[in-house]
């Protein structure tokens, strides 16, 4: 069997006294597209942020592309990695945020080039042509010299996806990438995500877009109360959900959609 792109065992995380993840375990094979559904407070975003090492879990292990994240073995114990090493590991995954978080003092092109040029120390000329190609693939080559403030929300999110892809990650993490968008731009962003999925990158997508999940995902995770409650291939998940909570969630979300 091939090594999983993401391997998680018994992940625990709390904020203060409030437990958010209560033992999450998960295997994602390379190239799989996984959507994570669940209500607010279910822990889905926190799980994603632990994988991106923007949060540190209290307990549990994450292995990505064969590397144990945040920890290393020394004299038979697991000790924290250096800040420098963690910074390097964060590049293994590309992260797309709900609120885009583009660098406002840089143009779209500069945003995309920043990681490869400054972090990977690659030659600017070579990176530039790659970055322009990436912007073209998200349909924004004509906006290369625009600053984020001059772009719509949907355009900013597409630049943010290009910025994440520029580091050639093996895994792409999306944290509710369309939640902060106006309805008209949602489609453009989802289309870009579909093409990323088709390129064979492993994807983990926290989302509320059920139609996107149904169409693009290979597999759906449903999280509730800090655990993965249901984990099934997409067709099974929507066709024959096992858990009562899943059915209630689907009914509530789908009901809302039809009345809207």
């Amino acid at each position: 069997m091939t090594e999983p792109a993401i391997w998680i065992r018994n992940l625990h995380k709390s904020f203060g006294t409030n437990p958010v993840l209560k033992g999450v375990s998960l295997d994602i094979p390379p190239g799989q597209v996984v959507c994570v559904l669940g209500g607010s407070g279910s822990g889905k975003t926190t799980m994603l942020r632990c994988i991106a090492q923007l949060e540190t879990a209290e307990d549990g292990l994450i292995v990505m592309s064969g590397e144990l994240l945040g920890l290393r073995e020394r004299n038979g114990r697991l000790v924290p990695r250096s800040a420098h090493d963690i910074a390097r590991q964060r590049r293994l995954a590309g992260m797309v945020f709900q609120r885009f978080n583009l660098f406002p003092h840089m143009t779209a092109l500069e945003n995309v080039m920043e990681g490869p040029v400054r972090v990977q120390k690659r030659a600017a000329a070579e990176v530039r042509s790659e970055a322009l190609e990436l912007l073209r693939s998200v349909g924004l080559e004509h906006r290369a010299d625009h600053y984020p403030a001059q772009l719509s929300g949907g355009q900013q999110q597409r630049v943010a996806i290009a910025r994440a892809l520029a580091l050639k990650p093996t895994v792409m993490l999306f944290d509710e990438p369309t939640s902060a968008l106006d309805p008209e731009s949602v489609g453009d962003v989802l289309a870009v995500m579909k093409s990323v999925a088709a390129s064979g990158v492993t994807m983990l997508v926290v989302t509320h877009e059920l139609s996107f999940a149904r169409e693009v995902a290979d597999r759906i995770l449903f999280m509730d109360g800090g655990v993965i409650l249901e984990d099934a291939p997409t067709a099974d998940f929507f066709g024959t959900p096992r858990e009562d909570r899943t059915r209630a969630f689907l009914a509530a979300v789908l009901g809302q959609k039809t009345t809207a």
């Binding site: 991106a52 090492q53 923007l54 800040a83 420098h84 910074a87 390097r88 964060r90 590049r91 995954a93 590309g94 992260m95 945020f97 609120r99 978080n101 583009l102 660098f103 920043e114 990681g115 400054r118 972090v119 990977q120 943010a160 910025r163 994440a164 580091l167």
Partner: peptide, 20 residues
């Protein structure tokens, strides 16, 4: 979010400070 975006593209704290 700017710190997080800088971290996510692999910047060290110092570089994130300087560049972002």
């Amino acid at each position: 979010g700017q710190y997080e975006a800088a971290s996510a593209i692999g910047m060290t704290r110092l570089m994130a400070m300087r560049r972002i």
